[in-house]
């Protein structure tokens, strides 16, 4: 087993905190059983939690960028919901669905996941498939398909990756 690092401690605190939120009150036994369960879960799902890639989200500066990214996402989600509401409530259903291939890839799997989930939540787009070349995205309208290039989400995830 690899030596202990910061990310090990982070996962341990995360799992123990989840256990404490779900349990009623704090006592010695609860803390003891919770720590045992956290260590067992970390041992069991070791290959999933810290594989070959280093988890760079745990540095304080990265966390700052991440919170900024979450704020941008909240505004985008509000915009996308209002747009979908307009489309659904209009009597003629102004949609022109199409598939778009986005040639854009990231080095780490974590950033791929963040990008794909963000694209799903932003206006008029839905991620369908991911492969080595890029992302396959389903667009609801033509404007959404054109707005996918050089979008604010792409720049933010780039920012998250480089810094």
């Amino acid at each position: 087993m690899k030596s202990l690092s910061v990310s090990h401690g982070f996962y341990f605190v995360l799992l123990l905190g989840f256990w404490l939120i779900l349990s009623q009150g704090i006592s010695i036994e609860i803390l003891f059983v919770g720590s045992g369960a956290a260590v067992l879960i970390m041992l069991y799902s070791r290959s999933m939690l810290y594989g070959t890639e280093d988890t760079s989200l745990f540095q304080p500066r990265k966390l700052m960028f991440f919170f900024k990214f979450v704020l941008i996402m909240l505004i985008e989600i509000l915009k996308s919901n209002i747009q979908v509401a307009k489309i659904v409530l209009s009597p003629s259903l102004p949609i022109s669905p199409s598939f778009v291939k986005v040639k854009k890839t990231f080095k780490k799997d974590l950033h791929k996941v963040i990008y794909a989930n963000s694209v799903t939540l932003t206006p008029g787009t839905l991620t369908v498939d991911v492969d080595e070349e890029g992302f396959l995205v389903h667009a609801l309208t033509n404007e959404a398909a054109e707005g996918l290039k050089d979008s604010i989400i792409e720049k933010s995830v780039d920012h998250l990756e480089v810094k």
Partner: peptide
């Protein structure tokens, strides 16, 4: 309500997913 209406009204699976995912999440 908008998500449910989209789920009922939209013509195919992908567009239904657009309406239901976004509106249900928010």
């Amino acid at each position: 309500a908008v998500g449910t209406l989209g789920l009922i009204r939209m013509p195919d699976t992908y567009t239904r997913m657009h309406a239901s995912t976004k509106c249900d999440t928010l």
